[in-house]
Design a protein around this nucleic acid. Structure first.
Lengths: 206, 206
DNA sequence: TCATTTATTAAACACTGTTTAATTTAATTA
DNA sequence: TAATTAAATTAAACAGTGTTTAATAAATGA
């Protein structure tokens, strides 16, 4: 067996573990996940986890990273084809919200995660986030379009993009946490949210 | 011993348990909290918890409720005395953010809590939140001041107040989660956030 | 003082994550 | 193919967790 095939086999078992973990989390939540539940399902002994991962935390981190990529993938389809910057921002924001709400548990687990290796991918409030974070980068472009002809620094643009993101993030998290919100109220909130932040931009041109 | 005194004594032990739990959570986080750690410190047997609480979850809920009241108390000092509605909103929002950041762990534990008995106090996105939630109610008043002379429904005002809240909530949570943000960047974010949402309001008068 | 609540605990149960050493299985080399 | 080495897997234990049960100790009311 070649080194490559061996590595592939190892990857397969790692995936088997992670996917099984994912299923349990989907059914019973992150707190319902245990090593023994995983190994019972895949018919291994509990100790096997520690041959493929350092510990449970690392295993969960790997699961989170996978979900993060899943979210990123979904989000990359967000780019609105509309050429009007205002409509573009509205479309993109709405799409972003809806994608997040289609995978509420994953979104929350990732975006509220405080472990360093996850934050490495999910933090957005640092200087230079516009080049390192796709979501912020996209927002920056649209914001820049607004302020065409006005003297506004790149720093201020990034700041604004970050705040569009955090405000949208806040709405998403509360829509997830506060279950049982009627669909009509949800729609009203989302539409009004978009209205307000776009207007906030349109008229901050100083 | 009278019934009243007996009830007081029971409250004392309940508080002893909850306060000890609080100390552990402060030092080791919510995941570092265990029944045995509590009972070791207060020199009781683990089973005592189940005489004063249904289970660990109820005990934590009670702790959360206490912290919630602590937050509410601090927040009630938020009312700006400024009579200008715009400045009032700016002052109040800034004060709200700063108070939350002074008790980051408590704020997160409460505001991201998904248990029903906590959500009963912390949910804000329902119809009628303006009368049941102080924070939303205050915002509604200020928003109403803005729209004086314009035809705007109470429903739309409440919606706007809720979104000012969720957007501010989003910023706070990310400021807490993303540790190591330089103070200057924090201030910039907070000031720009206030700028944007106020402008969004000022110019949505339709 | 006696009976009856009330407070407290010891001890077990069924879990949890993790480590160790032993064992089985597979791959490599002679 | 046989012997050797390496990798994969596990059994068994450890220390920790939340929780329940039945027994005990303390406080109360008659």
């Amino acid at each position: 067996m070649s080194k490559e095939r061996q590595a592939l086999k190892q990857e397969e078992i790692k995936n088997l573990i992670i996917n099984t973990a994912q299923e349990i989390v989907a059914k019973e939540g992150i707190n319902g996940l245990s090593i023994r539940k995983i190994t019972n399902i895949i018919d291994y002994s509990p100790a096997i986890i520690y041959h493929y991962f350092k510990d449970k935390d690392e295993m969960i981190s790997k699961l989170m990273e996978k979900n993060y990529k899943k979210i990123i993938d979904a989000m990359s389809s967000v780019y609105s084809t509309n050429s009007e910057p205002e409509q573009k921002l509205k479309d993109s924001t709405k799409a972003y919200i809806e994608i997040a709400l289609q995978m509420p548990d994953e979104y929350m687990n990732i975006m509220l995660n405080t472990s360093d290796n996850i934050l490495e991918h999910t933090s957005v409030l640092f200087n230079g986030a516009s080049v390192k974070r796709q979501a912020i980068g996209v927002l920056c472009k649209v914001v820049k379009d607004y302020y065409k002809g006005f003297t506004i620094s790149d720093a201020e643009i990034e700041l604004t993009a970050q705040l569009i993101w955090t405000s949208t993030f806040g709405l998403i998290i509360r829509l997830i946490i506060e279950k049982n919100i009627p669909q009509e109220q949800r729609n009203n909130l989302i539409n009004q949210h978009i209205k307000i932040i776009i207007n906030g931009l349109l008229h901050t041109k100083s």
